[in-house]
Amino acid sequence: MPILHSVIHKIDKKPDGTPAALHLAAAEQVDSSARDDLMQQLNESYNATAGKGWGLFHAESGAFPLSGWLGKYLAGGFDFFNFSVIAASHLTKLMEESNLTTGGHALFCHYQQGLTDYLTIALVQETEAIAMTEDLHLKAVKRLDLDRIRLAARINISEWKNNPQSKQYISFLKGKQGRKLNDYFRDFIGCQEGIDGPGETRTLLKAFSDFVDSEDIVEEAAREKASTLVNYSMAQAKMGEPIALEELSGLIDEDRPKNFYDFIKAKDYGLSETLPPDKKTLNKFRRFTGRAEGLSISFEAHLLGGKIEFDEAGGTLTLRGLPTQLTEQLKRAGA
């Protein structure tokens, strides 16, 4: 994860009505193991945080100027430090106008991961920690609280530049701190939501269930393929990377690597070539299975309470929306 540029400014904003004050860094963060460790921890914390939105820039305007400044920096119009100063000044202005009490350290980092360029912008709070001095005395120190990041966004610069039609080159945290706080930071980034991560993940899982039914895959093989799907998707989420349909298809069926991908395209589920994984949705996706006296039942957990109802007292399952193939067999058997 080579870091190209990194700057940290500080914004003081207290709840007593005092105007927000921006304290600018003197220069970029120097190349050091401390800087690299900080960004590694921030990246890991960001990837692990549930509840993200995915989107794209609004058209550049006076209300949403960040994309223009970023484009000018990338084109060599000014250096990264000046870009961060202009952006931090705008963030401070928005913070003051929104009358929000949350200041913090405004962190800007341009880095590479593989062949992809990213820009991470985060507002990081301070917290107290206990440190040991050289003469073995305890003392309270302040540290950046990377475990609880509330306001942050990551821009896939390469995707933005190379695929301008994309609707998911920006990810941002959608925390529980309140809509007003989320909206002001998203306005600062100039981002509009472009893709529904949980909805896309649910559609992918529905497509997989339909695929398993259409292929008449045996129970054990279906469980293995479901596990492959979830493990791959969770790994992508951990790295902050999207699910790639072609890659996933190859993992699900190595003998016919395009089989699942072609099924999705033929059925027109409306899925993008890549989609953001939603960990909460994936965690709910597991199969309930059972077999006894000639009866074999297997279904995804997300169907429970919808197409499938369980009566615990009576020990019965009620099924709705039976597969057409099964319905036709039952009709012929009852004729």
Rank of each mutant, 00 (worst) to 15 (best):
D36E: 15
L38S: 07
L42I: 15
N43C: 14
N43D: 15
N43G: 15
Y46N: 03
N47D: 13
A50N: 11
G51M: 11
K52R: 14
K52C: 09
G53D: 07
W54S: 14
F57G: 01
H58Q: 04
H58M: 05
E60H: 06
S61H: 06
G62V: 10
S67C: 04
W69Q: 06
L74R: 10
A75S: 12
A75H: 10
A75L: 08
G76S: 12
G77F: 06
F81D: 00
F81V: 01
N82P: 01
F83A: 08
F83P: 00
V85P: 00
A88W: 01
S89P: 00
L91H: 02
T92W: 05
N99W: 07
L100G: 01
T101K: 07
T102P: 00
H105K: 08
H105F: 13
H105Q: 08
A106S: 08
L107Q: 01
L107D: 04
L107R: 04
F108C: 01
F108D: 01
F108N: 03
C109W: 07
H110P: 01
H110N: 09
Y111W: 12
Q112W: 11
G114N: 06
L115I: 08
T116M: 12
D117E: 14
L119Y: 05
L123W: 01
L123P: 00
L123Q: 00
V124I: 15
Q125T: 03
A129S: 14
A129Q: 09
I130F: 12
I130K: 09
A131Y: 07
A131M: 10
M132F: 11
M132L: 15
D135Q: 03
L136A: 04
L136M: 13
L136I: 10
L136S: 05
H137S: 03
L138N: 04
V141F: 07
V141T: 15
I149N: 05
L151M: 03
A152H: 01
S158N: 10
E159L: 14
E159D: 11
K161L: 14
N162L: 15
P164F: 13
Q165T: 10
Q165M: 09
S166Y: 06
I170P: 00
I170A: 07
